[in-house]
């Protein structure tokens, strides 16, 4: 029996974008998630965090590495096994306006999984289950016959959550599940996710760029930069003692709702922009923006290494203690 519900080992996903041009969206990413825990995955747009989520759930085929769910490689499953697997893993998408079929009623959207997996024997059981799901996420049964356009963003995201929960999954990939919502609604959805996690013993991969929310909801956090995980640790450890220069810069850039603190903090900005993920050289991908970069950083690529306290960092400066 595997201790980790999900193990990702050396996952790679490349996209061909032109002649001899390969975009390394995800390049050798590894992490584990324990049952009932939440892993936060943060990074800027284009760093590959969504691709990681999609490859884990096999919406994309991996170009290398393994995704072990309960000890079995997701990408080796045959069709029948894969269908069975989709019952255990579900996804909540970023844009609640684009991820619901506008021509289906909310009831049909939520119930689709029930039908596909033949989870209900009678018609009545099916409708009862849909009502139950809608009530679980804080909607009411009258909503089942309505269409997505009749709902607000927050309510639509609840429909998305109900759809994900319909098949009793063990694992949910939340891909920027709250970033399209207003602040006061974000808190409602986060609370719902936390509550459901406790009640249903769910495991989450929480992909987001809002650092404060990730800090709030995740047990562990991994920071991605250009297709690589550059730092990974327990959430409090990572946020209190960030080690990788990129993580430090990212945390310093995120504004906090605290005027006095904002006034006092040093305005230290990360310069430059993210390099291109197309045909990257095997060097530290942050080296071009890193103020501490030495020649070594531009010749070799640092590996993710444990620097104590289960704190993994891929940076020569930290590993060798310059």
């Amino acid at each position: 029996m595997a201790k980790h519900l999900l193990e990702v080992k050396g996952l790679k996903k490349y996209f061909k974008v032109g002649r001899n041009q390969i975009l390394h969206a995800v390049d050798d990413v590894s992490f584990n998630i324990e049952q009932g825990k939440t892993l936060g995955l943060v990074g800027e747009s284009g760093c590959g965090k969504t691709t990681v989520g999609r490859t884990i759930i096999r919406l994309y085929d991996a170009d290398g590495g393994q995704v072990l769910f309960n000890g079995r490689d997701v990408h080796q499953l045959n069709r029948k096994e894969y269908k069975e697997f989709t019952r255990s893993m579900q996804m909540i998408f970023q844009d609640p306006y684009a991820s619901l079929d506008p021509r289906k009623t909310v009831g049909a959207i939520v119930g689709e999984g029930l039908k596909i997996h033949k989870l209900c024997e009678t018609r009545q059981e099916y409708t009862e289950r849909i009502y139950e799901l809608l009530e679980t996420v804080g909607l009411s049964r009258e909503h089942a016959s309505r269409f997505p356009h009749e709902f607000s963003g927050g309510q639509r995201q609840r429909v998305g959550i109900a759809r994900a929960l319909a098949v009793n999954p063990k694992f949910i990939v939340c891909d920027e599940a709250i970033s399209a919502l207003d602040v006061s609604i974000q808190a409602q959805v986060i609370n719902l996710l936390v509550e459901l996690q406790e009640k249903l013993k769910l495991t989450y991969l929480f992909i987001a760029h809002d650092l404060n929310m990730v800090r709030h909801i995740s047990d562990d956090t991994a920071v991605m930069y250009l297709g690589k995980v550059v730092e990974k640790a327990e959430t409090s450890e990572l946020f209190e003692t960030p080690k990788h220069p990129y993580t430090i810069g990212l945390l310093a850039a995120a504004p906090e709702a605290d005027p006095d603190f904002e006034q006092s903090r040093a305005k230290t900005l990360m310069s430059g922009e993210v390099a291109s993920p197309i045909n990257p050289e095997p060097i530290c991908r942050f080296a071009g923006r890193c103020p501490y970069a030495r020649p070594k950083c531009k010749q070799n690529e640092p590996e993710l290494m444990d620097v104590g306290n289960n704190h993994y960092v891929a940076c020569y400066k930290v590993q060798e203690g310059w």
């Binding site: 800027e44 747009s45 760029h209 850039a253 900005l269 990360m270």
Partner: peptide
């Protein structure tokens, strides 16, 4: 993005 946001605000 956050890092770009910080640059623009500054």
């Amino acid at each position: 993005d956050v890092t770009t946001q910080a640059q623009i605000l500054e």
